[in-house]
Amino acid sequence: MQFLYSGLTSGSVYGLVALGFNIIYNTTGIINFAQGEFVMIGGMLIYTLFAVMGLPFPIAFIGAVGGAFVMGILFEKVFIRLTKIKNELNLITVTIAASIIIRDLAMHFWGRDSLPVKEFIPVFNIQLPGGVMSSQSILVIAVSLFVAFGLNMFLKKSKYGKAMRASFDDPIAAETCGINVSNIRVMSFGVAALLGAVAGVIIAPIMFVTYDDGIMTGLKGFAAAILGGMGNFGAAIAGGLLLGILESFSASIIPSGLKDAVAFIVILIILFVKPDGLFGKKKVHRV
């Protein structure tokens, strides 16, 4: 049971990152390999605003995720917008280059050391059937589920959320409705960055924040998205939780140094055996 609990904690973070991958995949058809960098940015911003400047947590939280949202928008306006020929290969290459630039900038701002962020809530352990969970871990799971639920409501109920789904569904038809699809694309980068930053903030007190966190988190979120099946939000969360649990259980059978390999083994197995993901629908071809 203990493995399950720790798996759910890291899994919900992967789920949030996987959601970010999905949103951008849906609007642009690409994998944004800089997605993990926004998790790092979220962690770094909460370090600066909360741990260094000592702002009250709610304000620091809004500052961190709001800052990441703006960076996501700038990311689209600079890296994606300026790419002349927007085919998938070019855009994916651009996101990889951008992720390296962001990481290097972060190293200059925040240095190479792992930075500690103190807890935002009182820390205590909660006794659960077959194991314990810290209040921190429960917060991580609760926030992730809450954010996933909030995103779902945004997409289902709000006018702009619906416009986003319309643009995923058929960008040309969306244009004919008067929806400015390129603005929607910009917004999707902002929302994806925000989701990543939420993950970065809530995980910061559990794991230190380091400038190069984005690589591993990004790849695991990607593995979760592939595991669930691209283009499906519920599946992203499920894929994240499943990956977290797999990782956690594998620690009991393989050396813990190999724990990170689990995500990549998962990617390979899925791509070999079930390329649409566990819960994925058959891909529809975009025109």
């Binding site: 006018k159 619906k162 416009a163 789904r165 319309a166 995923f168 569904d169 058929d170 040309i172 038809a173 969306a174 004919t176 409705c177 008067g178 929806i179």
Partner: peptide
């Protein structure tokens, strides 16, 4: 548009709502 291009993963009412965006 040609081929109708309704938003197939959205409800009929949502489609109409999008028309009035």
């Amino acid at each position: 548009p040609e081929g109708r291009r309704v938003f197939s993963n959205m409800s009929v009412l949502e489609n109409l709502e999008m028309g009035g965006f």
